[in-house]
């Protein structure tokens, strides 16, 4: 005999009950809570604005952001220090100093770093702290929520890196061969702005995806962006096409692309590696595609995954 039958035998479903005990105090509800007085639903863009606004507020209140901004502005000091302290030929050219800093630090280090620590965590923290439960029980479009978060990341990260890069450029003009007024130099600066924004798009979207899909987005991100990417650029063949770095490198000015390693010297010998170059146009398309696919996959993950499930069994 199952439990339902047991209770049915005892008349649980059939016996009427007296009124519940009315020892409760009475309360008068305000008008706004009465039925049919729901606030107007503003739709997709209201949710997108909310997601972006809330993420911006959260980011700006974090000490982590101040620390990241401080680190991102440190390269500004390098050209200044070089102009006073160094007498090497490298330091004689402001152009060389700026290009090295822009590529080695801003494009290859800071953009993935910002993406991992901010884009990835903006989504992952709602999952980890289980505030996702509140968001998923709102009539909020999941894509609007994801895009809002991503937009907030892009705004903050772009602002920090572009300002820092511009100041580094200004500081590099202390050296010869770089000027704040020369058109070709300013074009170079704008070129790097573009590369930084495109790199942030791709790295940011990929990190958002890691945040929505894995429990440890920073660990996986460090392995993939700092481990895998650098290994893939050394392995012969076409493996490097499965990295974001391949396409950000392709967008760098000529000087940088010429630095691609074609010979790898090791204790075992010297290996020659054929590098398949990608045109700037195709690199832009690839980066935009990585962004779109990553964000699309994030939205699908948010729609399909059961984020409240980790402690659910038996609850």
């Amino acid at each position: 005999m199952n439990a339902n039958e047991t209770m049915l035998e005892k008349g649980m479903r059939t016996v009427d009950l007296d009124s519940p005990q009315d020892g409760n105090r009475h309360m008068t509800l305000p008008d706004w809570l009465l039925q049919g007085r729901q606030p107007a639903y503003r739709g997709y863009f209201a949710v997108l604005q909310a997601s972006c606004g809330h993420a911006l507020q959260t980011l700006l209140r974090r000490r982590r952001l101040a620390l990241a901004a401080l680190v991102a502005f440190l390269p500004v000091l390098i050209p200044i220090a070089l102009s006073f302290l160094s007498s090497s030929r490298f330091a004689e050219s402001g152009n060389v100093v700026f290009v090295r800093l822009a590529e080695d630090l801003y494009v290859n280090v800071f953009t993935p770093l910002m993406a991992l620590f901010f884009a990835g965590m903006l989504v992952a923290e709602d999952i980890e702290m289980r505030t996702m439960t509140y968001i998923l029980t709102r009539p909020a479009s999941r894509s609007a929520w994801v895009f809002g978060r991503f937009l907030a990341f892009m705004t903050v990260a772009s602002l920090i890196l572009i300002c820092s890069c511009a100041l580094t450029f200004a500081a590099s003009t202390l050296h010869a061969d770089l000027s704040l007024t020369r058109t070709t130099d300013l074009t170079l600066l704008i070129h790097y702005f573009g590369v930084i924004v495109l790199a942030l798009l791709a790295y940011g979207a990929f990190s958002v995806f890691l945040g929505a899909f894995t429990k440890r987005p920073i660990v996986y991100g460090v392995i993939l962006l700092y481990g895998w990417q650098y290994v893939a650029t050394l392995v012969p063949g076409l493996v490097d096409f499965f990295t974001i770095k391949k396409y950000t490198d392709a967008l760098l000015p000529l000087m940088a692309t010429q630095r691609n390693v074609t010979e790898i010297h090791t204790a075992l010998g010297t290996f020659t590696r054929e590098v398949f170059l990608v045109s700037a146009g195709k690199a832009v398309v690839a980066l935009l595609l990585i962004t779109a696919v990553s964000l699309g996959a994030t939205i699908i993950a948010v729609l399909r995954r059961e984020y409240a499930a980790d402690r659910a069994a038996g609850g």
Partner: peptide, 9 residues
């Protein structure tokens, strides 16, 4: 913020 996520102005 939860009201905003709900879609309110």
């Amino acid at each position: 913020w939860l009201n905003r996520y709900w879609g309110m102005s």
